[in-house]
Amino acid sequence: MNPETELKLQAWVDGELPAAEAARLAAQAANDPALQALARQLRAVKAALPGNELARSVPETREFYWGTIQRALERAEVTDTVRPVWRWRAWLGAYGWRTALGAALLLVLAAPVLRPRHPAALAPQVQVDSPLENVNSYTFRSEADGMTVMWVSSQ
């Protein structure tokens, strides 16, 4: 018996085989003692389990078990109240400097598109200061060379 037949037989036992295929397998099983034996075994295990799970009781008193849940609910409620502000601060801490850096980069890249119609109005050298305390970035743009250089320093 190959693995495919075995799995099909199991699907048949579980009622998960399409009707046409189920009929074919039933006919095959009728003439095959090995298939019949396997189907019996699968059915025996399938019938033995449902409703026969060992009952277990929480090894804690009702008060102690509920007390833990109640405290968790109280904590969750406090967190929910605080969360919007906390999230904003956490986001700023984690991503704020990256966003600022990204915005600076975007400005630099978009500069040729956004530049005024009179090139003279644009200074040959533009310096963009980072708003962050510990990250500095300087951008130099040379219209003559058509080149932008950006220097980022962590200090």
């Binding site: 019996r40 075994q41 026969n52 060992l54």
Partner: peptide
Amino acid sequence: PTVTVNPTAGLERAELRARID
């Protein structure tokens, strides 16, 4: 060989549950 005898036959329910567990 496939076990043809039902291994859970003739068991008290409590014993069957303990054995399954």
